[in-house]
Design a binder for these strands. Structure first.
Lengths: 231, 231
DNA sequence: CTTGCATGGATACGATCCGTTTCGTATTAT
DNA sequence: ATAATACGAAACGGATCGTATCCATGCAAG
């Protein structure tokens, strides 16, 4: 018998919205099942890693059939994409604190706590290579999560400049790298991710970004040839 | 027929030296074969990634039998470990240049060029998750490659302080994170890895680490609560 | 030189997991 | 009620894993 073609995954992802009639005939898909699979996938992914993850284990833990997973998502990558977007979203925003250092510290602490204290940590570890190598997972992640963080930090830097705390030419293009890069470096390559660590990163970056003090003579030791100050 | 037990992998790894008599009876293993497998593994790993890598493909490209690979290494992880150590080693050292900024720039450019211009780039991308998650691969990598880089950068900072270019209390514990973290951040999450990028990272870090200028009044805008300045 | 033994390459094997298909049942819209 | 779809379970062919087996090759000890 020829299988009907209407059994393909259709679920909305965070980025690519699958076109599908808002309402269909017949039994609608269960949100409960969708959530159960996503939760089970997160757990198994954190324990087994992406490569060794068996969708049969996910199905078993979610209490569903394996085929049901394939009805909701086309692949492991699609599942990972939705999970990543969902877990990363809450840790982007930096509250306006009125104080530049507090906001910069939040820009470091947010991703740091995300990877140490939330399920996002094991998940991002498991998916680092996929993000770095596989465009179907990496491109959406960069376009949404990473870009959102860049935008947020750009606003923090902008407010700091407006307050006169940061130099007007503070390099906003590399601010995310300087503040968040160290966190991911330690996530991968070891080293404690403590509040003290975050403070020290902020100390140095803020000093590098600090507005020249009135009465200060020289703009610090920049022997820089500076092909910088970019287009 | 019971298989003899003397057919287990014995090859030296960079870290764990397998005990094995220096000389055995019979035909010795071929270094040519060992190298051919490593090279083929590097190529296939860069193209297919770690999870999807098939040792049969590696064997075919190396012109050897699959079983031969298992005679030399116990697993894919063991192969990856040896390859990583071999590829990473050449990009650690920072030449003494007499100029602090030049040396800091080298500390950024070395890993940057390694990931953009050498086979180390595709390999480290493919292995990021394994390093972050799998201790059998991550621990040796941290103990050798990462630690060597930390030590090298600590020497650079030390020389900068001695020259009076950097403040005496420059935070050496996070210098590697500030200089190399941004490179790996962009490797994973996108953004150009250009000489200009490296220059700008160094500009900011060096300003943050700069020795206070004689005649300068304030030590920059540090509202820092500072539980820092650590044990 | 001869003899002994491990290597190297090839092939086959059982086990496992993938993604799909099929089937009976459950749940909804029309 | 009827049609259409989702759900859970089971089974499928195909692919890949790591190992075992085979034979010829090539060093080294005697």
């Amino acid at each position: 018998m020829i299988e009907s073609e209407q059994d393909a995954p259709y679920r909305k992802s965070a980025v690519v919205e699958e076109s599908r009639p808002a309402t269909r005939k017949g039994r609608p898909r269960s949100d409960r099942v969708h959530r159960a699979i996503l939760d089970a996938f997160r757990e198994v992914l954190s324990e087994e890693g992406f490569a060794d993850l068996r969708l049969e284990h996910v199905a078993a833990r979610a209490g569903v059939g394996k085929a049901t997973i394939y009805r909701h998502w086309a692949s492991k990558e699609a599942l990972a994409q939705e999970l990543l977007a969902e877990l990363a979203a809450p840790h982007i925003a930096v509250a306006e604190a009125g104080d530049t250092r507090t906001e910069l510290l939040a820009a470091v602490l947010n991703p740091m706590r995300a990877v140490t204290d939330t399920p996002f940590g094991p998940v991002i570890r498991a998916l680092l290579s996929q993000i770095a190598v596989n465009p179907t997972l990496g491109d959406p992640f960069r376009a949404t999560v990473v870009q959102a963080r860049r935008d947020e930090i750009a606003r923090v830097i902008g407010r700091g400049i407006a307050r006169g705390d940061l130099r007007p030419d503070a390099d906003v293009d590399i601010a995310t790298e300087l503040l968040v890069g160290p966190v991911y470096f330690r996530l991968m390559f070891g080293g404690e991710l403590s509040r003290d660590f975050a403070n020290r990163v902020v100390d140095t970056v803020m000093r590098g970004y600090a507005a020249p003090q009135p009465g200060s003579s020289s703009p610090a030791a920049s022997t820089s040839p500076k092909e910088s100050t970019r287009p």
